[in-house]
C-alpha cells in the first residue's frame, strides 16, 4: 500500500483529516511536528512560500520517499464564473505568480474530479481576482517546486476546495473545517484510490536487497567499481532469473585479507549471479 503524505497550509485544513484517520502527533529531528498513523501522514506547512520551503523541505529530507504520494489539500479562492464555493477541484497546472514558473502535475488516475489551474500568489486576493481564470492559493507552486526534488510528478496531487470568490478573507477556522468535512468522503475515496493504485512501482531491489549489498560492500571491502558491478549483476539476476539474491548472505562471513582474496571472491559471486 502506498504512503500518502497530506500537506496543508492551515491547521484547520488538517484537523478533519487528523480526526478522521486518528493520526497521532509525532516529531522528526528537524523539530517539525506532524501527524501519522500507518501509511497516512499529515504535515501542516504554514501559509506562504517561505514556510513551505523550510518545513516541507526539511521534512522530505528526513523521511524516505520511495513509495510516497504527496497530496496537497486545502482551501483556495476561485474565479466567480468558473468555480463553485465548497466544490473540490483537481489542479492540472500551477503558476507561480512571482516568477511566472509553471508546474504541471501528471494526472494519470481516474479521480472523477473537475480540474482547474491554480495561481500561487504572495498576498491574499480580495478584489474579486478576475485576472485569475481558476483558483488562487499561496503555497501550491512552492510545494510543487520543493516536493518534485524528492517525489516524481505523477505522485504529486493538488486538491483545492473553493472557500471564496476572492471577495473576502476567510479567517474562521470553523468555516475551513466545515468546508473540508463536507468533502471528506470524496477525499477519503481519493486517498484510497491512490493508496491502492499502481502509481508507485516496487523497486527491483528492495530494502533487504540493499541492506545485503551494503553488507557485502563492507565485509568484502569492495571498490567503488566493484560495488557498482555487484549491484548491476544483482539486478540482472533478479530481473532475468526472477530469483532472489539471499544466497549471497553466506559471503558476509568471508574474511578478506588481501586484494587477491577479494578479487577471487568477487569473481565467484559475479559468476554465480551471471549463471
Amino acid at each position: 500500500m502506498n504512503h500518502i503524505l497530506i500537506t496543508t497550509a492551515l491547521q484547520a485544513e488538517a484537523q478533519p483529516l487528523i480526526e478522521h484517520y486518528q493520526l497521532e502527533k509525532k516529531q522528526c529531528s528537524a523539530n517539525i511536528f506532524y501527524f501519522q498513523r500507518g501509511v497516512i501522514t499529515c504535515l501542516t506547512t504554514g501559509v506562504g512560500e517561505k514556510n513551505v520551503r523550510k518545513r516541507l523541505g526539511a521534512f522530505l529530507n528526513e523521511t524516505v520517499c520511495r513509495n510516497t504520494i504527496l497530496m496537497n489539500m486545502g482551501i483556495a479562492g476561485g474565479n466567480q464564473d468558473a468555480t463553485e464555493i465548497g466544490k473540490l477541484y483537481l489542479i492540472n497546472k500551477i503558476t507561480d505568480e512571482k516568477n511566472g514558473k509553471v508546474w504541471l502535475p501528471d494526472a494519470l488516475l481516474k479521480t472523477g474530479l473537475p480540474e482547474m489551474p491554480l495561481s500561487s500568489v504572495s498576498k491574499g486576493v480580495t478584489d474579486g481576482g478576475n485576472q485569475y481564470a481558476g483558483l488562487v492559493d499561496m503555497e501550491g507552486a512552492a510545494i510543487f517546486e520543493t516536493a518534485v526534488q524528492f517525489i516524481p510528478v505523477h505522485c504529486l496531487v493538488f486538491l483545492k476546495i473553493v472557500s471564496d470568490h476572492m471577495d473576502e478573507i476567510l479567517d474562521s477556522p470553523e468555516q475551513v473545517v466545515s468546508l473540508i468535512n463536507k468533502q471528506l468522503p470524496e477525499i477519503d475515496g481519493l486517498i484510497s484510490l491512490m493508496q491502492n493504485s499502481g502509481l508507485v512501482r516496487t523497486p527491483l531491489l528492495n530494502d533487504q536487497h540493499e541492506h545485503l549489498l551494503n553488507g557485502l560492500k563492507k565485509s568484502l571491502k569492495l571498490t567503488a567499481t566493484q560495488t557498482y558491478q555487484l549491484k548491476d549483476k544483482a539486478e540482472g539476476f533478479i530481473a532475468v532469473q526472477d530469483d532472489d539474491i539471499a544466497f549471497l548472505s553466506q559471503y558476509l562471513k568471508v574474511e578478506i585479507k588481501t586484494k587477491q582474496e577479494r578479487t577471487k571472491v568477487f569473481h565467484e559471486i559475479c559468476t554465480r549471479l551471471s549463471a
Binding site: V102, L104, D106, A107, L108, V148, V153, H154, L199, R201
Partner: peptide, 16 residues
Amino acid sequence: TAFNRSGQDFIQQKKS
C-alpha cells in the same frame, strides 16, 4: 514545459 519536466516517470506515463 510539459515534455521536459524533471521528475517524470516514463513507464507510468505509458499507462495514460
